[in-house]
Amino acid sequence: MRTFLALLAHEARLLFTWALPLATAGSTLILILVIETGSPEILPLLKTDPGLALSMADRLVLRVVELAAPIVGVLAVSHATSLDVDAGTAELVGSMPRWTPGVILRRAAAGFLMLTLSLVFIVLAARLVTGLEFSLDRPFLALPPSVFLAGLGLVVSAWTRSHAAGLAAALGLWVMDLIRPGMCTGPLYLFQAGRPPCCQTAGLDLCPNRLLLCAGAAFLVALSSWLYSRRGLSR
């Protein structure tokens, strides 16, 4: 356990970039500004699934957090597989006796931990600063899609050995789903606001959708760790 924690700390250190706290601070600031200046006119823009019985405040926070969390998540994790390619250490890590896919599994864990902490910070800071009463747990439903997108970034960058490609894939899907909810993602739709009609008629609710996203993320992380360890063998 101690060894695992020591390794986790090292992986977090390797993954950490200043983009992460910057994105977190920026998101917090935007959320606070939106709440403080939010006039009744912009509230209809914050469309959410009408099936969800949410207060205006919840809708507003949800909307901002759903936009912020995937960016933070992708920034936190998606370079886990390309890190060693960029640093030139893939060969060294591959020559170590510890199970090579474990490197990516630990990095994903460390990255998701950082994402969760960022989200806690955003939500708590917004609540403390604005004093607005909103649900504290609902925003965390933005975690599964963020983790899923980060996992997609991991797989693509493990496959192409390029961080940029991973970022492009993850953020590309995110933008697609923002514009046309559910078009590419179907039952794996990312936004709570955007439950696509097909899922509504199929009765696919938010809860199974979030569970599916978590399972998908687990699969993507596992796939990327396998790709990473395979690619390590052939320089």
Partner: peptide, 30 residues
């Protein structure tokens, strides 16, 4: 690999770590 110490021809390390942190990481991987 458990018996092995390997220095690759093109050895590189993580630039943002200090040598102690890097060696600690490698020691854990070993």
């Amino acid at each position: 690999r458990g018996l092995l110490g390997y220095l690759p021809q093109d050895f590189r390390a993580y630039d943002k770590l200090t040598p102690r942190e890097f060696l600690d990481y490698v020691a854990l991987l070993k």
